[in-house]
Write a protein that binds this DNA or RNA. Sequence first.
DNA 1: TAGATTGTTAATCGATTAACAATC
DNA 2: TAGATTGTTAATCGATTAACAATC
Lengths: 206, 206
Amino acid sequence: MSHKIIPNIVVGRLPLYLRTLQRMMHEGRQVTSSQELGERLGISAAQIRKDLSQFGEFGKQGTGYSIDYLTSQLQKILRVDRVWDVLVVGAGDVGHALARYQGFKNRGFRITMVFDSDPEKIGERVGEFVIQDIATLIPTVKGAGIKIAMLAVPASQAQEVTNKLVEAGVTEILNYAPININVSTGVHVEYNDPVIQLQKMSYHLD
Amino acid sequence: MSHKIIPNIVVGRLPLYLRTLQRMMHEGRQVTSSQELGERLGISAAQIRKDLSQFGEFGKQGTGYSIDYLTSQLQKILRVDRVWDVLVVGAGDVGHALARYQGFKNRGFRITMVFDSDPEKIGERVGEFVIQDIATLIPTVKGAGIKIAMLAVPASQAQEVTNKLVEAGVTEILNYAPININVSTGVHVEYNDPVIQLQKMSYHLD
DNA sequence: TAGATTGTTAATCGATTAACAATC
DNA sequence: TAGATTGTTAATCGATTAACAATC
C-alpha cells in the first residue's frame, strides 16, 4: 500500500496538472474541476480524475478541487514541497541559459553549481556562479549531497561525465546532449533534445 | 494506403532511431540490427521492427539493416532529407542559446530569423542574426514561407505571440514557455519545459 | 431540493511482446 | 548448409474512456 507502483505515464502528467494549477492560482482562482483542467491541457476529465485517484481523494463532489489544496498535495507527491539543489555540467550556451534561467522559481529547484572542463572557463562567472573544474566534481557534489544534475556537455563527453555524476551520488540526470547515455539501476535519465522534438513535427510537413 | 495513420507514439520514436543511426555512421559502422538498436535505446527489438514495418521493409533477414540506407529512409519519412528554416521568437537567454545552438547541423533544420518585442534588443545581434521587431513578424514570416517556430518568450506573452505565428502560416511550434497554448486544428505544438522533466524525476527522490 | 462533479468500475481501445515462418 | 535476423501475426498487457452511484 505505501509503495503502490504508479505508471510513469501517470507521474509524467502530474507536473502538467501542477503547472496549470499554479497558473490558475496566479490568476486568483480558488476552485477548478477535472473538466476545466482537462480543457486547458487537452486531456480528458476522466483521465485526470483517474490519475489523481491513484494518490488519494482530493476533490468534493459537486464543487471540484480547491486549487490551493490540490496544488499542495501535488507538490508533496512530486517532492517539490521543498527546494532541490541542482548542478549544471557544461558552461557552453546551453549551460549558460540553464544557469541563468528564471523559471525554476517556486517550482522546487535551484541551481547551485556549474562545472566545466575548459581551463579558459574555469574561474569565470556564469550568472551568479563561478565555473568550477570538473576534476573536482566528484568530491564537491558528493559533499553537498546533490542528487540532480543537468548535463549540457558535448555528446562526445556525455557518457564520461555521466559516470562521474553517478559516482558522485547523483540519481537524476536531465541530459541535453543529443545522445543516449547508460546508467546503473536506480539512476533516472530524462532527455531534452530540441531536434528530436522538431523532427516529430517535421513529419507532418510536406 | 498512401496515408495510413501512424500513431504519434511511433512517430515519436523515429527521431531516436535516426539519431542513433547517425551516431553509428559517425562511428564508421555499416550495418546494425533491431537488437543492437534496441540495446542502445532501451527499447525492445520487436518494437523497433514493428515501428519500421509501418513504413516499409528496410532490412535483410540474417544480416539486419544497412545503417546508411535506413538513415536515408528515416530522413525521408521524417521530412529531414532537406533543411527547414526555423524562426526563434524571444531573444532572452533561451532564445540566445537556441540561436547559437550548433546541434541543428545535419539534422534537418537551421534558424534563419530571431524576433523580440523589446526596443532595447531590436537591431542588436544574437549569434549571426539581427534581432527583428516582432511587429514585423507576420509579413516577414509569411513572405519567407517559414512553417516552424521556436517560442522562447515569457509565459505571459506566449498565447499572443502564438496567435501571430499561426496567422503568419506557422504550423509547427516548439514552445519553451512554461504554459499551455491553444492553437487551431492543423497546428502542432511540442512543449519543452525543463522543470516538467525535473519534476518527473524528483518524484523518485525522498 | 436540483445541479454539478467526484471517485471508481467495467468496457473499450491501443500498444507491446512473444513467437516463428521466411529467407538472407 | 547453418546461423542469424527480418517482417508479421496473435496473444498479452496496459492505458483510456464511458458511465454512474455517491454526495457535496
